[in-house]
Amino acid sequence: MTSPSVPADPIPVGRLGFGAMHLPTAPEPDRRAAIAVARRAVELGVTLIDTAHLYGWGANEELLAAALYPYPENLILATKVGVAPPRGDREAAFDGSPAFLREQVDEALRRLRVDRLDLLQLHRIDPAVPLADQLGTLRDLQTAGKIAHLGLSEITAAQLAEARTIITVASVQNRYNVLDREHETVLDACTEAGIAFLPWRPVHPATTTTGTEIAAVAAELGATQAQVSLAWLLARSPIMLPIPGTASITHLEENLAAEGLRLSPDQYDRLTAAAFPRAG
Rank of each mutant, 00 (worst) to 15 (best):
Ile155Val: 14
Thr156Asn: 13
Ala158Leu: 12
Ala158His: 11
Ala158Ser: 13
Ala158Asn: 12
Gln159Gly: 07
Gln159Asn: 12
Gln159Met: 11
Leu160Val: 05
Ala161Pro: 01
Ala161Gly: 10
Glu162Lys: 10
Ala163Arg: 00
Arg164Cys: 10
Thr165Trp: 05
Ile167Ser: 00
Thr168Arg: 12
Thr168Glu: 13
Val169Ala: 13
Ala170Val: 03
Ser171Asn: 11
Ser171Thr: 14
Ser171Met: 10
Ser171Pro: 04
Gln173Phe: 04
Val178Tyr: 00
Val178Lys: 04
Val178Glu: 00
Leu179Ala: 13
Asp180Gln: 14
Arg181Trp: 10
Arg181Cys: 04
Glu182Ile: 01
Glu182Phe: 08
Glu184Phe: 07
Glu184Val: 06
Glu184Gln: 14
Thr185Pro: 02
Val186Ser: 00
Val186Asp: 00
Leu187Ile: 02
Leu187Met: 10
Asp188Val: 09
Asp188Met: 12
Cys190Leu: 02
Thr191Phe: 06
Ala193Cys: 12
Gly194Asp: 07
Ile195Asn: 00
Ala196Lys: 00
Ala196Trp: 00
Phe197His: 06
Phe197Cys: 06
Phe197Thr: 04
Leu198Pro: 02
Leu198Phe: 08
Pro199Glu: 15
Pro199Ala: 15
Arg201Trp: 11
Arg201Val: 03
Pro202Val: 13
Pro202Glu: 15
Pro202Tyr: 15
Val203Cys: 07
His204Val: 11
Pro205Met: 14
Pro205Ser: 13
Thr207Ser: 13
Thr207His: 10
Thr207Gly: 08
Thr208Arg: 14
Thr209Lys: 12
Thr209Ile: 03
Gly211Ile: 09
Thr212Tyr: 10
Thr212Ala: 09
Glu213Lys: 07
Ala215Phe: 04
Ala216Ile: 09
Ala216Tyr: 02
Ala216Arg: 11
Val217Asp: 00
Ala219Ile: 05
Glu220Ile: 14
Glu220Gly: 05
Gly222Lys: 05
Gly222Pro: 01
Gly222Val: 05
Ala223Tyr: 07
Gln225His: 03
Ala226Thr: 05
Gln227Phe: 01
Gln227Trp: 02
Gln227Gly: 00
Ser229Leu: 03
Leu230Asp: 09
Leu230Phe: 06
Leu230Ile: 06
Trp232Asp: 10
Leu234Lys: 06
Leu234Cys: 06
Leu234Gly: 04
Ala235Gln: 12
Arg236Tyr: 02
Ser237Asp: 07
Pro238Met: 15
Ile239Asn: 03
Met240Gln: 08
Leu241His: 13
Leu241Trp: 05
Pro242Asn: 06
Ile243Asn: 11
Pro244Phe: 08
Pro244Gln: 15
Gly245Tyr: 08
Gly245Ser: 10
Thr246Pro: 03
Ile249Ala: 14
His251Pro: 01
His251Gly: 02
Leu252Trp: 04
Glu253Trp: 03
Glu254Ala: 05
Asn255Ser: 08
Asn255Gly: 01
Asn255Cys: 01
Leu256Phe: 05
Ala257Gln: 10
Glu259Ile: 00
Gly260Arg: 12
Arg262His: 11
Arg262Leu: 11
Leu263Cys: 04
Ser264Cys: 08
Pro265Cys: 14
Gln267Trp: 07
Tyr268Arg: 13
Tyr268Phe: 15
Tyr268Val: 05
Asp269Gln: 15
Asp269Cys: 03
Leu271Gly: 01
Leu271Glu: 04
Thr272Gln: 14
Thr272Arg: 14
